[in-house]
């Protein structure tokens, strides 16, 4: 999507100042997912496919209602189903909508060596710019939520954009629009936090979920996608939601003193590709991938 319509806060692999930084501060957006009212209907999955024009892929039955084991380069929004037995022996069917968390301190962006391949807008959305992506996959190691996915055909990495294209036009993301139960909400971070806290309190006081709470992990500076959980003390049971996500230390290290070194390596890599091109000609893109995005 066009970068012109959104104010940028941070840019991957970029030396020097961020264009327009400090000029204007937009409201920070946030998606609230109330897992306690999600019914796993997958309307959000399909809306995501449709809005983003993602290609159909073949799936197989995996002894679960879950569409596939994890999100894919062409499947950015996945409900994770988990049968969880509580201490009293009663069963819970946990359904958590998994997608990019749009971290305040995005590990992917920190890890990315390509100038402008990942940007963070002032509204909090972390967006990949595939035209700048070099397919190195560093962002994948940088993400504590296992979100960016490499497309072997496009040789680029893809993930949820929080429908940045819709959001700039004043619309909610496609998943929010499609959700029938209203378990998804969209607004400013402050509003969503308040709504989430309110719901968590209700769950504690009226529904017997003493440990209900809000997931907005501080290890990544908070996220622009937050959850209400029945049991905030144990997010791992929701299909491996990390209890205390952090950007890996290797990436943190890389981000600071080692980055210039890495940049050198990248330059060498790009040079290698250029030499490859000179010798063998351009790589052909598979037909179904021609014509832009995934």
């Amino acid at each position: 999507m066009s970068q012109a319509t959104l104010e940028i806060r941070a840019i991957s692999g970029h030396a020097g100042s961020v264009p327009g930084a400090g000029v204007k501060r937009e409201l920070e957006v946030c998606k609230l997912i109330d897992t306690t009212t999600c019914i796993g209907c997958k309307a959000c999955e399909v809306a995501c496919l449709e809005w983003n024009g993602l290609t159909f892929s073949e799936t197989t039955f995996q002894n679960s209602y879950q569409t596939m084991p994890e999100t894919a380069w062409n499947y950015w929004n996945l409900i994770k189903f988990n049968e969880h037995e509580r201490d009293d022996g009663s069963l819970m069917l946990l359904m958590r909508k998994d997608q990019c968390m749009h971290c305040e301190e995005p590990g992917c962006l920190a890890a990315c060596p390509a100038d402008g391949a990942i940007v963070q807008y002032a509204n909090g959305i972390v967006d990949f710019q595939q035209d700048r992506c070099i397919g190195c996959g560093y962002c994948i190691t940088g993400c504590p939520f296992n979100i960016p996915k490499f497309s072997p055909q496009a040789r680029k990495v893809f993930k949820c954009t929080l429908c940045a294209d819709r959001v700039t036009q004043g619309l909610e993301p496609a998943c929010i629009k499609s959700c029938p139960t209203g378990c998804l909400h969209f607004g400013t971070k402050a509003e969503m936090k308040e709504l989430a806290d309110h719901r968590a309190t209700q769950l504690r006081e009226h529904s017997g979920f003493a440990k209900a709470g809000v997931y907005d992990p501080s290890g990544v500076g908070g996220t622009h996608v937050i959850y209400v959980l029945h049991d905030a003390s144990d997010p791992e049971v929701y299909g491996g939601l990390p209890a205390d996500p952090h950007v890996p230390w290797t990436v943190q290290l890389w981000k600071k003193p080692l980055k210039w070194l890495g940049n050198l390596a990248i330059v060498a890599g790009v040079a290698g590709v250029f030499i490859h091109y000179l010798r063998y000609g351009p790589k052909t893109v598979p037909e179904d991938l021609q014509g832009g995005k995934p």
């Binding site: 997958k42 999955e45 496919l49 449709e50 159909f56 073949e58 799936t59 039955f61 569409t67």
Partner: peptide, 12 residues
């Protein structure tokens, strides 16, 4: 319909 089939592909 491909999209429905993608979300649950097979009988069980």
């Amino acid at each position: 319909n491909p999209m429905n089939v993608e979300t649950v592909p097979e009988p069980f």
